[in-house]
Amino acid sequence: MQANLPFGRRVHPNDEKALPAVRILFGRLRPPTTRKILMKLYYIPSACSLAVHIALRQVGVVPELVRYDPVTGKDETGAALKDVNPKGYVPTLIDKDGDVLTEVVATLVELDGRYPEAELLPVGGADRRRALEWLAYTSAELHRNFILPLFMDVPQTEDITAARAKVEMRLEHAAANVSASGPYFMGAQIGAVDFYLLVMMLWTGPAKVNLEQWPQMVAYRDRLLAVEPVREAMKAEGLI
């Protein structure tokens, strides 16, 4: 069984209404300064590493990007990713001190701790608990269930159909919880939950899940695609 990776597909302005016509101007979109801090991010275009890439740009860090090929197990220089991250997958982030950070949720939480002024997560209380809950939900219930319909190069099977149905159920739950009080998932402040959910929404096309059945999710996706750090990260990965 071979992995059929749909990543790297460019998002065209006319592709499923992927890019909105206007930029959303409310809510703080990015920190005021760009940090000159060396971080190296191993990535696959449009993979889950995109969520970390966007978060880095949101906090003002422009990472050194190293593209990884999951078929060969090597990066663009020919080096094996397992020499850096024994798990051999993205995201793999190396900070200025040489520490290696892996896993989407753990890395997003770590970035929030290092750059609290960017408010990738709420500071505390019920809002923070809810944001952490949604990060865990996105990882365990959405990301995991995308694996069969998105990655496996096999004929349609009952397992793939069941996985796609689970994705739709999980997206329906997310759609019911998009904030009514602000442009982003948690309200007025954009953050880590938005970046991870955006990647999941971008996967719906290749996974043959119709996001249009939840108009509020389509509008939410389009608002995120208008945000400057999102556009910068996607442009750097060759997606727009």
Rank of each mutant, 00 (worst) to 15 (best):
A162H: 06
S46I: 04
M1I: 13
E228F: 03
A136G: 10
A47F: 02
L56S: 07
P45K: 12
S181E: 15
P86M: 06
T77A: 15
P86Y: 06
L111W: 00
S179Q: 09
M217F: 02
Y42I: 07
Q156C: 10
Q58M: 11
T33D: 15
A126H: 08
M217K: 01
R221G: 04
E103F: 02
E212K: 14
T157E: 14
V218Y: 03
A180V: 03
R223E: 01
W134I: 01
V227G: 03
L93M: 11
P13C: 07
D222M: 14
V167G: 10
Q156Y: 06
E64H: 09
L142P: 09
A126V: 11
A174V: 15
E133H: 10
Q156A: 15
K166Q: 14
V90S: 11
A236W: 05
K96L: 07
K82A: 06
M152L: 13
A207D: 05
D69A: 12
G205Y: 11
V109P: 00
N4G: 14
L198W: 03
Y137F: 15
M152C: 06
V52D: 03
R223F: 00
V61I: 15
V61L: 13
P122G: 00
Y115E: 05
L120Y: 01
A118G: 05
L5G: 03
D95Q: 09
Y42N: 11
D112A: 13
L108N: 04
Q216W: 00
E228T: 05
E16A: 12
L25D: 07
P116A: 11
V193T: 13
E228N: 06
A192Y: 02
P63M: 14
Y43T: 11
E110D: 13
D99G: 07
F26G: 12
P183H: 02
D99Q: 14
R57K: 14
T204V: 08
P20N: 02
D95S: 09
V11D: 09
I147W: 04
V104Y: 02
W134E: 03
Y43R: 11
F7E: 13
M1D: 01
T138R: 03
Y184E: 09
E103V: 04
V11W: 13
V105Q: 07
R57W: 06
P91Y: 12
D83N: 03
Y137H: 11
T72P: 10
R35W: 05
M234H: 02
L50H: 09
S49V: 09
P206R: 06
G113K: 08
Y68L: 10
A226K: 00
V199M: 13
R35H: 14
